[in-house]
């Protein structure tokens, strides 16, 4: 059994919630390109870390950081310098 959880938490979803609060569209289906290695994937498939301090989303190919998000009592932070873009599909 994991030695280190006080409850099983949907890790990726803690990260998703932090990001989602900042976007008008569903962020999980947006596509993004890793600045470090060029691979393209859905934001929902990025590897999430660092909950509950924040969300650190890493490339599933090279582990480079694409995005970081944090929500503190003094405000919200979003950094996306590791992502070349975010692309939201328009509905048909």
């Amino acid at each position: 059994m994991t030695e280190n959880v006080s409850d099983l938490v949907l890790e990726g979803n803690a990260a998703v919630t932090l990001l989602q609060e900042l976007f008008a569209c569903d962020i999980t289906v947006a596509r993004t390109q890793c600045e470090a290695c060029g691979s393209i994937e859905g934001v929902g498939s990025l590897r999430p870390y660092a909950a509950p301090m924040g969300a650190v989303l890493r490339c599933s190919h090279c582990d480079g950081i694409l995005m970081r998000a944090a929500h503190t009592p003094h405000g919200r932070w979003l950094e996306m310098k590791g992502a070349r873009y975010l692309r939201f599909q328009s509905s048909m």
Binding site: N4, S6, Y49, V56, R58, I65
Partner: peptide, 12 residues
């Protein structure tokens, strides 16, 4: 106080 030792990492 916790008796666990939670793990928090920013990466793998």
């Amino acid at each position: 106080v916790t008796t666990d030792f939670p793990v928090l990492s920013a990466g793998p």
